[in-house]
Every structure is written in structure tokens, then in C-alpha cells.
Amino acid sequence: MLLEHLAGNLIQGLVLGAIYGMATMGLSLIFGVLKVVNVGHGAFIMVGAFITLWIFNALGLNPIFSIPIAFAVGLGLGLIFYSLAIRKLLKAPELSTLLATFAIGILLEELVKLIFGSEFRGYNWVVGKINLGVTVLPVAKLYACIGSIIIALLLYLWFNRTRAGSAVRSVVEDDEGARVCGVNVGGVYALSFAIGIGLTVASGVLVTMFIPVGINPYMGGGYTLKAFVIAVLGGLSSPYGAFFGGLIFGIVENGSYTLFALIPGVEPFALTRFLSFVMLLVILLIRPTGILKAK
């Protein structure tokens, strides 16, 4: 019984983890290239969720079609915010970008609230379920999981097989060196920020495929915090590190519930959250480059 429950939670955790990972890649890309922590991260996920909702309800389109649309919208938003604000703050102290991205997040939340209201919304995409014995997995979640993996792979290929990708990589390694070698560092910054936001908005679509309810302007906050933990797990500046970080996070978060539930007199669910933040601190201390990368 206990093992069965644990197995079920681990499978659910793996699926969820893939989505968490995907939802963090944009944050890591932006930090890796621009050294900017996007505190408004969750707001962009929220934008993706609203895009999905709107397309599903108004046009009746399958959420999968929303992924490229959300990505394109994200690219646009990224370019706008980069040229209006972030570009001017790259030389400023850390505090400025932290606060600027936070303010961008609030701006998005309030704009969406103005347009859509603060109602909690959702959509119902019925595509069936798969019974795995230990747990039940809706097909929509499976699609979301597969979608995450495909996007992560595409990003990996882009990084390693294209010229633009290698330019980005060279900036991550050493931006001064890249500049000397003739890389257009300013262009790489703009492109990376736009792609990072694009990925984040697209991940909003996958998040709603996993949980198609509770969509509201302020839904992003929780995802921002989780993304921070996951990004650190993956080494903070590596987007695909973040993907694996997400997998581990999902498994730990869901799997530990079963174990904490064995302790009498506590609330296991809150303790799973506690554990994830302890994990964050421990990793920051012993291996700030992330658990996957060798030094």
C-alpha cells in the first residue's frame, strides 16, 4: 500500500517535474546570458496561461496550438521589455534589475486583470486518461510532459548546432572574450532575453495543460519561487540543467509527501515545501554550480 502510493506519487512527480523544468529554462537562460534574475518570471507564465485559455475558449483550438503562439507573443514581449528597460540597466547594480523585473511582473498582472478581471478561470479539454494501476494519468498531462521534453531538446539543438546558439554559449562563458572575438554581444543579450521570455510564456501553456484551472492574474507568484529553487538545482545559468532540476524537484516534492505522512502530528504537505527550500540552501552551499555539473 505504502509503496504503491509512493510509486504513484513518483510517476506524477516525474510528469510534473518535466513541466517545472520547462517552466524554469527561460529563467536560467536569461540569468546565464544577462546575469539578470527575472523576478517577474511567474507573470510571464500567467500570460501564457491566459493565451491558452483565450485561444481555447474563443477559437476552440487545442492547447497544443497555443504553444507556438505563446512563444511568439513571449518573443515580442521580451524584445519590448528588453529595449525599454533591461538594456538600460545591464550596467546598473543588481538591485535595479531585480526591482525592474519585479515591476514588469506587476505591470503584466495588472494589465491582465484590467482586461480579463480577477476571476479564477479554467478550461476543460477532455482527452481521456491512462490507468497505470498505481495512479491515473490524464492524457493532457502526458502531452504536456512530452511537449516539455521536445522543447528542451529543441533548445539543446539550437544551442549546440546553430551559429546563434554558439554565440549565446560564448557569451555565457565569457562575455568580454566573446566581444573580442567579434560576437555581437548586445544582439545576443536581446535575443536571449526574448527567447527566455518566449520559453517562459510557452511554458504557461504547458502549465495549464497540467492544471487547467485556477487561471488568474496573480497565479504566477508560486511558480516564480519554485523556478528559483529549480534553477539553482540546475546550476542557475544552464537552461537544460534547469530541465533536469525540474525533474528532480517534481520527484522530491511529490515523493516526500508519502514519507512525511508517516510522521504523526505534522502536516506533511507543508513539510514537502520546507524540504524543497532546505534542498535549495544545501545545494547553494555545497555546490552552487548545480547538482548535475561537475566542477
Binding site: V229, V232, F277, V278, L280
Partner: peptide, 12 residues
């Protein structure tokens, strides 16, 4: 890293 660690402390 410091900023994120301190968020972790607060939430944790």
C-alpha cells in the same frame, strides 16, 4: 545566489 538563498530561508 545570495538573493535566492534568502528567499529560500523565508519560505522554508
Amino acid at each position: 545566489y545570495f538573493a535566492i538563498a534568502t528567499i529560500g530561508v523565508n519560505e522554508g
